[in-house]
């Protein structure tokens, strides 16, 4: 996505209360995933903002928590998730991102040479994505105020959303979008996880900033 359309996290622009910091957002995502009965692979908070220039409503990266899955371990051991060229590309990107974070003078890290799994890659790529005016599954949920809970690769593949289609290609089998104040909470899993009222309540409890 073009850089200009991906807003930086800003409590002021999104109407999120000042006390709702990046740190507390991360804690809530962590609690949601680690406290869940089911094995969710990741959670992402898509944050809403308005592009003043274009008057467009945008959902952009707010924060995310990646837990991983059993597939990560299996694929890393067998290194079979993608072609050699694709793996080289992913590792190169990861090394560059690591240099960006740690500094170009940092010593080489052996973890950067390990297989970058499909779900890790899907999560990383998510950081560059945004949804304008109700586009995509997160955008639709935000616009309509209705959660969406999609289970099964076949259903993800026919969802009217490129992100959902991409998710199933990368091994995800469940994807959930729940509209919350100031954005959308997305959950993804490589397992088949069916609708749970408990999980919906947990999302609402953790991401209702008024409470």
């Amino acid at each position: 996505a073009p850089e200009a359309h991906v807003p930086a996290f800003s409590s002021a622009s999104a109407g999120v209360p000042e006390y709702f910091t990046q740190e507390s957002l991360q804690q809530r995502l962590h609690m949601l995933i680690e406290g869940a009965r089911d094995s969710w692979t990741y959670a992402i908070f898509w944050q809403s903002s308005v592009d003043v220039g274009f008057g467009a409503s945008i959902l952009g990266w707010g924060d995310g928590y990646y837990k991983g899955c059993e597939e990560d371990k299996r694929r890393r051991r067998n290194a079979t998730s993608s072609s050699v060229a694709e793996q080289e590309h992913r590792k190169r990107v990861l090394r560059e991102l690591n240099s960006l974070i740690s500094g170009s003078g940092s010593s080489p890290d052996s973890a950067m040479e390990e297989e970058v799994t499909d779900t890790e890659w899907f999560f990383l790529v998510s950081m560059t994505q945004s949804f304008v005016n109700g586009s995509g599954l997160p955008g639709q949920s935000f616009l309509t105020g209705a959660p969406s809970w999609i289970v099964g690769k076949d259903r993800l593949s026919i969802a009217p959303c490129d992100r959902a289609k991409q998710a199933q290609v990368f091994g995800l089998q469940s994807m959930v979008c729940v509209p919350v104040e100031s954005g959308v909470l997305e959950l993804g899993s490589t397992e088949l996880i069916f609708h749970s009222a408990d999980m919906m309540n947990q999302v609402k409890a953790l991401f209702n900033f008024n409470s």
Partner: peptide, 26 residues
């Protein structure tokens, strides 16, 4: 570097750190 919004930079740093732990535990 400056063009990368702070939120994503923080998320990325956390992801890379956690990934090192996951890889070493595999």
């Amino acid at each position: 570097d400056a063009a990368v919004p702070q939120a994503r930079k923080a998320s990325l740093a956390r992801f890379l750190e956690k990934r090192k732990e996951r890889v070493s535990n595999t």
